[in-house]
Amino acid sequence: MTERVPVLKIGDVLLVSIQVDLEDQIVLDLQEDLASRIVESGARGVVIDITAVEIVDSFVGRMLATTAAISRMLDAETVVVGMRPAVAITLVELGLSLGGVRTALTLEKGLNLLARPGNDRPAQR
């Protein structure tokens, strides 16, 4: 009986705010939940808020990259928001640059990014 991270829907954007220390199974469940919710709801964008996340290891990093790739295939853009400086430095040292994942400083900026698809910066590597 593992808990699940709630996926909220605001307009045509799905919002996930991670507030718990992520156990691997929860990460896998979340990835599945998101894919099916995108299809169900016809969402155009996904925002994953990791402001409260203290570490991102290669497992979670891979989930973020995979989710971005899956959602793109389902015609939705994924933005990861709120990564802490220490987490970013560690990820770089670990060798993960989250290719294909778009990022924003805050939830607000992330939502703005999705609201203006024609206007945004080129997708990041």
């Binding site: 691997d24 203290e54 570490i55 991102v56 290891d57 290669s58 497992f59 802490r84 400086p85 220490a86 987490v87 430095i89 560690t90 040292e93 670990l94």
Partner: peptide, 17 residues
Amino acid sequence: SLVDQTKLVTAASELAR
């Protein structure tokens, strides 16, 4: 330091897995 804590915890997470 916070950065060093994060690095060590991340390494531990990888190795524990």
